[in-house]
Amino acid sequence: MGRWEPLLETLVRERYARLLARAALVAATPAEAEDLVQDALVATFGGRARFGSVEQAEQYVRRAIVSRSIDRARSRTSERRAVERLAGRTDAAAAEPALAGVDRDLVAALHLLGPRERACVVLRHLDDLSVAQTAAALRLSDGAVKRYTSDGLALLAAHLGATADADRTPVRLVRTESTRDA
C-alpha cells in the first residue's frame, strides 16, 4: 500500500463534509458536488504532488475541486441547460443541506453565476488568492480572472446587495478558524 492511501482514507473520513461544502459552492448542482470531490481526489492523489499531512492534502483537494469545476462545465449555457434538465430529477443522496438566511441566498446566488465566475470569486475572495495565483490555478489569463471576478461580483451584488472591491489586494493570511471567528 502506498503512503498516499492511508492519507486519502483519512482525508475522506475526517474531512469529507468540508470537501463537499467547498464543492457545493462551485458545483452547478448539488448532485455534481459529490462527483467534483471524487474527481478532485483522483486528480490530486494521482498527480505529482506529495503531502505530509491531511491538512496539506485537504488544501490541494479543495483547490482541485474549484479547478475541476471549470473543467467539467464546458460553458455557462450548457451548465444552465444541465441545471434545467436536472431540476426535475431527484437525487436524495446528493441533496444539499438546507441553509437559512444569508447563507442560503449567497449559495443560491453563486449558482446563478457561470462556472468560471464562481471559481474566480471563490478563489479570490474565499481563498484570498491573487489574480496571478487564481489564473495559474484555473489555467486562465490574468485578464480573464479579473473579468470573471468582476462579472461575478456584479451579479452577486445585484442579488445580495453585497459589496466587494474587485480590484482589492487580498490580505494573504495563514487562515485558521479561530482567526476567522475572532
Binding site: 461544502a21 444539499e96 443541506p97 438546507a98 447563507d103 470569486v121 475572495h125 474565499l126 459589496t163
Partner: peptide
C-alpha cells in the same frame, strides 16, 4: 464577501 462565503461554506460543512 469573503466573510459571507466563509460562513456559507461553514454552514454547508455543518449540514
Amino acid at each position: 464577501l469573503g466573510d459571507m462565503l466563509w460562513r456559507a461554506e461553514r454552514a454547508l460543512e455543518s449540514g
